[in-house]
Design a protein around this nucleic acid. Structure first.
Length: 574
RNA sequence: GUUCUGGUAGCUCAGCUGGAUAGAGCAACGCCCUUCUAAGGCGUCGGUCAAGAGUUCGAAUCCCUUCCAGAACACCA
């Protein structure tokens, strides 16, 4: 258990013993550091409830405190200020030099499925996919650290209009192929296409279909045929999906995103009949489609019904999501399913979730949650595009950052090591920037700013770690131990590190990583200040040198573990 | 049109389950290298928290109104 949590429990017990019935007290980092490390504001709420003087309540609490605190004082109308004694801090933090277990508080373990990634098969990953990947992967790792049982699913968009687009294009390229011969019987051949080919074919088909209604009808027809299980088209499409999957996987690997399940919409297919059977009593026909009402009496906004079967008889993305949820319930029986997609899909997910509960597809005890995120914009405030206004592919985006980041690597580092460092640094830069703002906030993509050594950036973080690692490596001392922590710069670092537990829990509750990044920056910034003003290796006083080294090790350990949650790798030099 | 999200320093953003004097980064200006990676650190400047009214010991935070911006709103995902 973390020191903060343990202390809060103690305080809660203490206040109860005085005669106030409360279930928790918060130890808040002080907004007025000159009065102490922490403030306790409980006297105000109790005063309001009991109609007593907050100052009197504060005095009662203060008088009961034991000697784990020093500098206890009451300010203003009833602010209680306390600081931990150095002995308490040393004893606790000396146990935190390796690993992160002593710094965090685990709750009840839940089984949670995380649906993130969402790449479209047969189309290159683009900017929009990056946030889902980065946020989803980090949240997945965070949940694991907090003791949950997590399953991450890439949930590929491998069914839908792009299949019709690509097959119609292939038909124009190879009209004589057996896939288009209705009389063909036997094994369909292997197609000779690369992911690059598919990347060229899709936009070509898309442009044509958008300008030509007949072509669009053909696309729809092919899409519907796959939906209905057409052998030739399904075989062709599956091959296309496999071809592009390899490339998609490589990009996800670059981003350190590793999925437990590599499934997609097509995998939901076989569950759709069961889903329809269960939902049957709630389905009705509307404008040719089969829909399910999801409006509730208390709604004060339009809530259109969820379309389950289109008027052409084919499934739609909602149907596939329902099938996926059903399959997850059957196979894993999770406590929760979390979705990470663009915020613009929030109404859609609301519809799907309501349909699940209403029809009994999902039991009430299983929580379905959608966590939307904001868009990545250019400096003009509009979604980030290539110079000519096209969709920015994720790979190009990585290369843009890589060009910037290269400038920060020392010239003396060359060859494959340089390449390796550039790889890690560019992903770290991209991720740090991507996770820096609150999940729902749109942010401006600014490669130069992100790759800068100054400010809240990946390079700043990794550079600081490089210095710590170099220093720890040079240290001859066998013993790293906090012995003398009277130095204020040291104390500031230690107190900041105590926040880890709360920061992780807050990040979990809101499914956002910006709090973690903020903490990383604050710790490292305090460490840099300390590093600048103190000689660590050359410190003559044994106790001080051991303490300084222990602080360095503690900082490294904490930041290393936090970066691991964010799926950000480090380098040894740069 | 209805609903949702947002409006905080010149710029980019935190803070929003009400707490003491509203924060950070960048930019600008000024300091600190016989130094463990100065690729760093320190300082200064910078605010009607969109506007107005309300709730209370206390409001950037909660409620209401208005203005501005973005998004969603049935067979695309």
């Amino acid at each position: 258990m973390s020191l903060i949590k343990e202390t809060e429990k103690y305080l809660c017990e203490l206040v109860r013993n005085i005669g106030y019935d409360i279930d928790n007290i918060e130890l808040v980092p002080s907004s007025r550091p000159e009065f102490g490390q922490y403030q306790i504001n409980v006297a105000f709420s109790l005063a309001k409830e009991k109609h007593e003087n907050p100052r009197v309540i504060a005095e009662k609490i203060v008088n009961a405190l034991d000697n784990r605190f020093i500098n206890v004082n009451i300010q203003g109308a009833g602010f209680i200020n306390v600081s931990f004694s150095n002995e308490v801090l040393k004893e606790y933090l000396n146990k935190c030099l390796d690993g992160i277990d002593n710094l965090i508080d685990k709750g009840d373990s839940k089984k949670i499925i995380i649906d993130y990634g969402g790449a479209n098969a047969a189309k290159a990953l683009h900017v929009g996919h990056m946030r889902s990947a980065n946020i989803g992967e980090a949240v997945k790792r965070l949940l694991k650290v907090l003791g949950h049982d997590v399953i991450g699913d890439v949930h590929l968009g491998d069914l839908g209009r792009q299949s019709g687009m690509l097959i119609s294009e292939y038909k124009r390229m190879r009209p004589d192929s057996p896939f288009f011969d209705p009389n063909f019987e036997g094994e369909y051949p292997k197609i000779e296409l690369t992911a690059q080919d598919l990347g060229v074919m899709y936009p070509k088909a898309s442009v044509d279909a958008n300008n030509n209604p007949e072509r669009m009808d053909e696309v729809r027809e092919i899409t519907a045929l796959i939906d209905k299980g057409d052998k030739a088209y399904t075989s062709l499409w599956k091959q296309m999906v496999d071809i592009s999957s390899e490339v998609i996987k490589k990009v996800y690997d670059k981003l350190n995103c590793h999925f437990d399940l590599w499934e997609g919409e097509m995998d939901a297919f076989k569950y759709i009949p069961d889903v329809l059977k269960i939902m049957q009593p709630y389905l009705y026909e509307s404008e040719g489609a089969l829909v399910c009402d999801v409006i509730k009496e208390e709604d004060n906004r339009p809530m259109p019904p969820l379309i389950v079967i289109k008027k052409d008889g084919a499934s739609i993305y909602g149907t596939r999501d329902l099938g996926t949820i059903y399959s997850r319930m059957e196979r894993f029986n999770p406590d929760e399913i979390w979705y990470f997609t663009d915020e613009r899909q929030s109404l859609y997910f609301e519809q799907v979730f309501r349909a699940c509960y209403k029809t009994g597809l999902v039991k009430e005890s299983c929580k379905l949650k959608h966590f939307g995120f904001g868009t990545i914009n250019g400096k003009d405030g509009k979604p980030y595009k290539t110079r000519d206004g096209g969709v920015m592919e994720l790979d190009s985006l990585i290369n843009i950052i890589r060009d910037e980041v290269e400038k920060n690597i020392k010239e003396e580092i060359t060859g494959s090591e340089r390449e390796h460092i550039a790889d890690i640094l560019s992903i770290a830069t991209l991720k740090y920037a991507d996770l820096l703002s609150f999940r729902k906030t749109d942010y401006v993509f600014d490669p130069e700013k992100f790759a800068s050594l100054d400010g809240k950036t990946g390079p700043y973080v990794l550079y600081t770690l490089v210095r710590i690692k170099s220093l720890l490596k040079k240290a001859n001392d066998k013993e790293f131990k906090l012995l003398n922590i009277d130095n204020n710069e040291v104390l500031d670092i230690l107190i900041k590190i105590l926040e880890v537990s709360k920061v992780l829990n807050k990040s979990y509750e809101e499914a956002t990583l910006n709090y973690i990044e903020e903490l990383i920056y604050e710790v490292l910034s305090l460490y840099n200040k300390f590093y600048n003003n103190n000689q660590i290796l050359n410190e003559k006083d044994d106790d001080l040198r051991k303490t300084y080294l222990a602080v360095s090790k503690l900082v490294y350990n904490v930041i290393h573990n936090l970066l691991d949650i964010l799926a950000i790798d480090e380098v040894d030099r740069m």
